[in-house]
Simulated scan of single mutants.
Amino acid sequence: MARERGAAFVLTAHHADDRLETFLLQWLRGAGPAGLAGIAAVRGAADRDGGLPAVRILRPFLDTARSVLADHVARHALATVDDPSNADTRLARNAIRTEVLPQLAAIRGGYRKSAARSIDLIADAAELMQELGAELLPWCTDGAPADMLRIDRLAALSPARRALALRAWLARAGVEAPSRARLREALAQAIEGAPDGRMRIRFGRQELRRHRGLLCLRVPDGGARGRERLQWRGEPELPVPSWGGVLRFVPTDGGGLDAGFDADWLRARPLDLRSRRGGERLKPHPARPSKHLKHWYQERGVPEFDRAVLPLLWRDDRLIYAAGLGADVRFVESGAGRIRIEWVGAVDLLTGLAGDVVPRLPA
């Protein structure tokens, strides 16, 4: 609503008591510094969306006690709305407000100011930790493909810094802050697990995976897809929504690895896009024998967890093209009027990594 009206700010009436209640709730839940810092006075500007202006959330009363605001409302006879659920002490926040805070006031009358000072210090510490994590990221991603994290660089850090770096990397990817236990599990599997062992840790909608010395995030595949029958009539590309990608048909006059299919041959019969079932063979290079797809994927460095999203293209029950590998050379030739097939999917593959990504660390 604020964006639609062109508002640059939204002000809320959160006050000092709200902040203290939030701190105690987070403390009971075992939150870390970021959670204990509680309600922020300013929430960062939201991303621009659809050309509408960004909106910032401001909370100008975080240093003002509830009693001060209540007196002001009563003195000026301001209209208010009361939520009946605020009186339900079965809810933890209400119990803290009506039962715990009065007891704290009885023990130490000035506790609100001292508690607010402690929360400010925790907020400062949380901000410094976030900044340190962000500063570690360039070093932990140096030399790695985009959006990947190097395990060797994480392992070279102290345990506390590892956690900060991984948190910062996950936050940059839009992952909601994980629990300390989940973060420690991820670090343990990444650093202490067998290099060739499988790693799959769920963070929201995504999964944390490991491949040849790298950490990456992947959205889990939805499962095996059925056969998709296509008829190419000369279009530059054919969208395949069920696979989340596009088959491109690129004219080529080259030879060798740039050789292509005969255009009339491709048009003459339907093409089938299928999932891999195991046992399929391909000959992607003229000087090398036909081998199982698993062998070629391993040689190309395509992670096991990415292979399920790579379709196979068949013509008359003969495999002619495998996404991530290329065409079977027995069906392509050099010369004019040839067509090279390309698959453009939603996943950027971790291909071409011949070995573990462990460059020498700086002195």
Rank of each mutant, 00 (worst) to 15 (best):
C216P: 01
C216L: 13
L217V: 11
L217D: 11
L217M: 07
R218S: 13
V219Y: 09
V219H: 13
P220N: 10
P220D: 06
P220T: 03
G223R: 08
G223D: 08
G223C: 09
G223V: 03
A224R: 14
R225E: 13
R225Q: 14
G226T: 01
G226C: 00
G226L: 00
G226S: 01
G226Y: 00
E228S: 12
R229C: 05
R229H: 01
L230T: 00
Q231F: 09
E235C: 00
P236S: 02
E237F: 08
E237I: 01
L238M: 14
L238F: 04
P239L: 02
V240Y: 04
S242F: 00
W243K: 02
W243C: 04
W243H: 05
W243M: 08
G244Q: 04
G244P: 02
G245N: 00
G245Y: 01
G245I: 00
V246E: 11
V246L: 14
V246F: 06
V246T: 15
L247V: 04
L247D: 00
R248T: 10
F249D: 07
V250H: 10
V250E: 12
P251M: 03
D253G: 14
G254Q: 10
L257A: 11
D258V: 08
D258P: 09
F261Q: 02
F261H: 05
D262C: 14
D262W: 05
A263R: 12
A263F: 03
W265H: 07
W265Q: 07
L266D: 00
L266I: 01
L266V: 01
R267T: 11
R269A: 12
R269S: 13
R269N: 03
P270C: 02
P270V: 03
P270A: 04
L271C: 04
L271S: 01
L273K: 03
L273C: 09
L273S: 05
S275Y: 03
S275Q: 12
S275D: 15
R276I: 03
R276L: 14
R277F: 01
G278W: 08
G279Q: 01
E280F: 04
E280I: 09
R281T: 13
R281Y: 00
L282T: 06
K283I: 06
K283Q: 15
K283C: 14
P284Y: 05
P284H: 04
P284A: 04
P284E: 05
H285S: 07
P286Q: 06
A287T: 11
A287G: 13
A287V: 07
R288Q: 15
R288D: 15
P289W: 07
S290R: 14
S290L: 15
K291D: 13
L293G: 00
K294R: 14
H295G: 04
H295S: 11
H295Y: 15
W296Y: 13
Y297C: 13
Y297L: 12
Q298M: 11
Q298R: 15
Q298G: 15
R300A: 15
R300V: 08
G301R: 11
G301D: 10
G301Q: 10
P303R: 07
P303Q: 10
E304G: 09
E304Q: 10
F305I: 07
A308P: 02
A308E: 10
A308N: 06
A308H: 12
L310R: 05
L310G: 05
P311G: 04
P311E: 08
P311Y: 07
L312K: 01
L312V: 06
L312W: 02
L313R: 00
L313S: 03
